[in-house]
C-alpha cells in the first residue's frame, strides 16, 4: 500500500494535455494564474471559466479527482471569503448585529472564492497531467537562464528528482521502524497531540540516521557512475517541442490576448455592478 504513494498526484491517462511539453504546461499554468487576478468583474471570469472547463475536459482527468484538491484549501477558502464578506467597508446591504455585509464586500468575497478555486484547479491540473520527472526536467530547462547569475539550477533539479525517488523508500522505512517500535510496546495512536508528537521522536532519530547513511551511499554510487555536476552532461530524453506544443503556445497567446483585452475594456466601461 505505502509503496504506491506517488507525490504530485499524477493521474495517468492518454490525453493531449498529458503529451504536451512540461515547459509549456509550467508557463501556461503561470500565465493562467496571472490571468485570474486580472479582473474585478464577472465578464472576465466567463472567458477564464470557458478556458478552464475546456482544458479540464481535454485532460481526461475525472472532475471528481480534480475537485478533491479543493478539500485541502476549504478552510482557507472559507476564512478568506468570511473576512472579505464582513470586513470590507462600503455600502451596507445587510446588518447582522455588529456584523455588516457591504456590496463591495460581497463582490470581493465572491471574486476571492473564484480566484482561489481556479488557482487550485489550474495548478492541480498541471500536476495531474505531468509526471514528477517531467516537471523537474521542465523546471531545469525553464530556469536554465538563471545559471548565468550562478543559481545551481541543475543541482536543484537533481535534488528534486532524487527526493522523489526516495520518498517511497523512506516511507517504507518509517513504516518498518514504526512496526519495530510498536512490537516493543511503543504507542503512536493514543493520547493528545503533544503526547503523540513526543512519541514520534524515537521514530525520527533512526529515520534520520538511515537517511544520512543512504545519502552517503547514493553519493558514492553517483560518483562511481561518473557524475560530476551538470557540465558536459547529455540527456537521455531531452525535452523537444513538437508541433502540438507550438499550437498550444498559440492558443495560450490567444487566450492571454483575449483576457487582457477584456480587462482593458472593462476598466474603461462604467461599472454596472
Amino acid at each position: 500500500m505505502i509503496r504506491d504513494i506517488t507525490i504530485g498526484q499524477y493521474y495517468p491517462a492518454d490525453s493531449v494535455l498529458h503529451r504536451l511539453d512540461p515547459r509549456l504546461k509550467l508557463s501556461g499554468t503561470l500565465l493562467f494564474i496571472i490571468s485570474i487576478f486580472l479582473f474585478d468583474t464577472f465578464y472576465g471570469y466567463i472567458a477564464v471559466t470557458v478556458f478552464l472547463v475546456s482544458v479540464i475536459k481535454m485532460s481526461k482527468v475525472p472532475l471528481k479527482y480534480i475537485m478533491r484538491g479543493l478539500k485541502a484549501i476549504i478552510v482557507i477558502l472559507l476564512f478568506t471569503m468570511f473576512f472579505n464578506l464582513f470586513l470590507t467597508q462600503g455600502d451596507v446591504l445587510v446588518r447582522l448585529g455588529f456584523l455588516k455585509i457591504t456590496r463591495q464586500g460581497l463582490y470581493s468575497a465572491i471574486f476571492m472564492g473564484i480566484r482561489l478555486t481556479y488557482l487550485i484547479l489550474g495548478s492541480s491540473l498541471m500536476t495531474f497531467t505531468t509526471t514528477p520527472n517531467q516537471l523537474t526536467d521542465g523546471l531545469e530547462k525553464l530556469l536554465s537562464p538563471l545559471r548565468r547569475i550562478k543559481v545551481p539550477v541543475h543541482e536543484i533539479a537533481m535534488m528534486m528528482s532524487i527526493a522523489l525517488r526516495f520518498i517511497p523508500i523512506l516511507m517504507e522505512e518509517t513504516d518498518k521502524i514504526m512496526k519495530a517500535q510498536m512490537a516493543r510496546g511503543a504507542d503512536f495512536e493514543t493520547g493528545g497531540v503533544i503526547k503523540r508528537a513526543k512519541s514520534l521522536v524515537p521514530l525520527l532519530v533512526p529515520l534520520f540516521v538511515s537517511a544520512f547513511r543512504r545519502a552517503n551511499d547514493l553519493a558514492m554510487a553517483m560518483e562511481a557512475r561518473c557524475y560530476h555536476g551538470g557540465d558536459g552532461r547529455t540527456k537521455m530524453k531531452p525535452l523537444r517541442y513538437h508541433r502540438i506544443d507550438y499550437f498550444a503556445y498559440l492558443i495560450l497567446l490567444i487566450y492571454m490576448t483575449i483576457v487582457i483585452a477584456i480587462s482593458v475594456i472593462e476598466n474603461r466601461l462604467p461599472s454596472f455592478l
Partner: peptide, 21 residues
C-alpha cells in the same frame, strides 16, 4: 536501493552515459 538514482528503470540505466556526455 541506494544506488538507483532515477524513478524509471531505463532512465537509471541512462544515468552513467548521460554523465559521460
Amino acid at each position: 536501493d541506494n544506488q538507483i538514482i532515477a524513478t524509471v528503470v531505463e532512465e537509471d540505466v541512462g544515468f552513467g552515459p548521460e554523465n559521460l556526455g
